[in-house]
Design a protein around this nucleic acid. Structure first.
Lengths: 208, 208
DNA sequence: ATATAAATCAATCATATGATTGATTCATGT
DNA sequence: ACATGAATCAATCATATGATTGATTTATAT
């Protein structure tokens, strides 16, 4: 008697694609990319497998969609680009905090980057997206390092690019499969800060 | 007339398993874990699929085998464990050099560690192997940092564990899919060294 | 030599998986 | 109301894939 048909709403392609991307990201976070199945994605969205294919032609396109939307979602969380006029340490901390919060609140994003990195071997297009993003992320830190050096708050012996690679490498290790959660996140960040800051202007008194 | 049968040699289980592990590692390096097929492994070894199953019961066992042999092969390349009697900087460099050479000469090892993170979510046993190994690797650096601090060559403000996490994180980023090869490896290592070393005992002369 | 165990293979199974086809339902403009 | 296109689904295909079965070949001990 009661209509068991819950009046299914048709959803616009763009929105559906976003729902599909979200489901795929969640599944990648939970089971890893190797276990990602187009069927699982469709099921999670609550649509038929052929509807999935109507919106996303094949698995390669799905992976590309995940890569692009993950990148965009992450970039949207980052603070404004480095600015030579503002204090470098504050900018560094804002940058790190944004990353930390993304790990805490959107763990799928880092998880997808980690997993898709492993797929990149087989999918050049994904590799391109990831490489561009990684480079961009790294450049932000390189610029902050350069700014801090010119502001005199960071060591003058710092090389911006190597330092940035060191920082992003250290931070990236807190992605999924990091050392049991985020417990060591801030201690590591503190360590990074100490390694950047100009050495304690130690009193050169005769008594030490 | 001529015996086309190249006198197939039977091979002992232990050796066969090592050949299988090696083939699997090579395939993981080339195509990624997601594309790893038991058939491909068997083919690469030059044996029938059922022979593969005779030596390695199922794919889970194969993955475990890869994880274990990769770990063992990598550990075998590392220098002696940290020793408080020896100079810390030399030990740090030996440790880093060993890792560098492993990336250059045995890229399958780092590749497998990276790729197996895809499985770790679904295979607790693999996760355990990877976690234990990562922790062990990190501890080596933590010990070197502690030694260097007590020897007075490293900053006294260093926290061994956070510093070690920073170092291993930075180094791990040079695994496969690192920033275009190993070009930036040594610059980053130099940056790490500068961040560890006690600050240039700057002359506190009045003229600067 | 011959029996036993170890290692190997051909053939096959059962299911998983990405993808397609053609009909059906919903939304929207006229 | 009705025509059109967008979104959806049930059913199905073709192949991939992990695994098994039972016979066959090689090694080894007696």
């Amino acid at each position: 008697m009661s209509d068991t048909k819950p009046t299914q709403q048709y959803i616009r392609k763009d929105d559906r694609r976003e729902m599909i991307a979200e489901a795929a990201r969640a599944l990648i976070l939970e089971k890893g990319y190797a276990a990602l199945r187009t069927r699982s994605v469709a099921e999670r969205v609550g649509i038929n497998i052929s509807t999935l294919h109507f919106h996303v032609p094949n698995k390669t396109a799905l992976v590309r969609l995940v890569a692009e939307t993950s990148r965009d979602a992450f970039l949207a969380l980052l603070p404004p680009r480095p600015d030579a006029q503002r204090p470098a340490l504050a900018q560094l901390r804002a940058e790190v905090r944004a990353y930390h919060d993304s790990l805490r609140d959107r763990p799928e994003l880092a998880a997808c980057f980690g997993q898709l990195t492993q797929v990149a071997t087989a999918e050049p297009e994904v590799a391109g997206i990831l490489d561009a993003f990684t480079q961009d992320w790294c450049r932000r830190y390189a610029e902050i390092v350069a700014i801090g050096r010119s502001q005199g708050v960071f060591r003058s012996t710092l090389q911006p690019l190597p330092a940035a690679l060191m920082i992003t490498g250290a931070l990236a290790s807190f992605g999924p499969r990091g050392p049991k959660g985020l417990a060591m996140f801030w201690p590591v960040v503190d360590e990074i800060e100490r390694s950047l800051l100009v050495p304690e202007s130690r009193e050169c008194s005769d008594a030490d």
